[in-house]
Design a protein around this nucleic acid. Structure first.
Lengths: 230, 230
DNA sequence: TTAAGTTTGTGTAAAAACAACACAAATTTA
DNA sequence: TAAATTTGTGTTGTTTTTACACAAACTTAA
């Protein structure tokens, strides 16, 4: 008979983007040994609950959000001393959301929920900084071979928004003309006929949308999204 | 207090390659409800044992092998009915080995251990066919952006071995000249001065080795291994 | 009202990478 | 000694990538 004294948790690394800054969601713990410490949203799973459902539930409970994109990242569990009573193994999920869509509200277990710029994430509890690091790398690499940037933007966006997103997350210079040409060549970004005056001055720009249907269609024909520049 | 009735296991998808065929390692269960069924090597982890150590231990115990490459693949756990007494969540690992280096020997828990050609893997227990499928995809994609093919070959190999490996695993035609040019251009494959007569007839070929030290060095300088062809 | 500032929108040319392609050299086998 | 097999090697046309600058549409300040 197997005698394990281990519990399973899930944690989510939720990224949000706004005006050139990438944010990570953290919640402040209300109870337990780490009360007041900031940690990633997450918690123990229920016996009959799929892992991803547990993540969605925790995000709803602890921060009041529903994400745009969610995928499994990796499982962490060698950090044996997370809890004194038992070992905790946590399955980390990678998520994207447009922060504008929600007002964060800490519910059940969390005292507070807050966006931290990735560059200024405080020392989190457990091995959560490690998770953030891995998720950040995943975001950067995924941005180049999957059109996930759109999940961080408004439904309708200016080309410069997309460009700035790549620019700021990848921390690389981008040639505006080449970038635009490349993205448009894929045919998965459609121009609306709405024109909007950006923040303040400057020429108004057209709004664009990501055509997910077209993208899924292209995928079947072996299309490979790929953005790499010098 | 958390009351979970879940156990954690690890499973390994071990690939081996020989003469144009890709194999997966499976073991035949000796005990339990699934006695005689073929499954992936794996088992429950110990309370104080890191996940990867558990995988290495199980591979040693159930098949008598030590792999060349090992990385976490994904965690499976929504298949709630794996065992009647409790839910099992399994962390799957992806591994590569050169089958020539070992004689498989089933030890403790396994009745037998055997290589199955990926194209002819039988119906395995649990959700293990799903794991094999995911691992197979991972292998194919990883082959194009990481020099892991070498972990499936002998230390010294003919250029045609490498070429056939790519050819057979990716199931695509390869232009020998372009392939060779590309691989050599990276500078991570070194020519030895040994010449060897291949199987039977034909001109003898030079042996090559993968220069891991050089590769690690290049990685620091932002080198990106990348093999893609029409 | 006009000049300065800001942001969007657009094309071309040079360089690099990729794709397509064939035959001679060294060996074994018939 | 002729046929079969496998290794080894270069060139050319095509495609992709990179580098690069200025006019148009608007706002703001003088």
């Amino acid at each position: 008979m197997i005698d394990q004294n281990i519990k399973i948790a899930v944690d989510a690394i939720v990224f949000g983007y706004e005006k050139g800054t990438l944010y990570v969601l953290a919640v402040q713990q209300r109870f337990g040994k780490l009360a007041d410490r900031w940690v990633l949203p997450g918690g123990f799973i229920l016996d009959d609950e799929p892992l991803i459902t547990a993540v969605e539930r925790e995000l709803k409970e602890e921060a009041g959000i529903t994400v745009n994109y969610l995928e499994q990242l990796a499982t962490f569990g060698d950090n044996v001393k997370r809890d004194e009573r038992f070992r905790v193994i946590s399955v980390a999920y990678f998520a994207l959301v447009n922060p504008k869509n929600f007002v964060l509200k800490a519910d059940t277990d969390a005292k507070d929920a807050k966006w931290f710029p990735v560059a200024q994430v405080p020392a989190l509890g457990y091995d959560h900084n490690e998770m953030v690091k891995l998720a950040h790398q995943r975001l950067k690499s995924k941005l180049t071979y999957q059109p996930i940037g759109f999940d961080l933007l408004d439904h309708e966006f200016l080309f410069s928004d997309l460009e700035n997103l790549y620019y700021s997350i990848l921390e690389r210079d981008i040639d505006r003309r080449n970038f635009r040409k490349k993205i448009l060549s894929f045919g998965i970004v459609k121009e609306t006929n709405k024109v909007v005056k950006m923040g303040a001055s400057g020429r108004p720009g057209k709004l664009f949308t990501f055509d997910k249907k077209k993208y899924n269609q292209l995928l079947k024909e072996n299309f490979q999204f790929d953005i790499r520049f010098a």
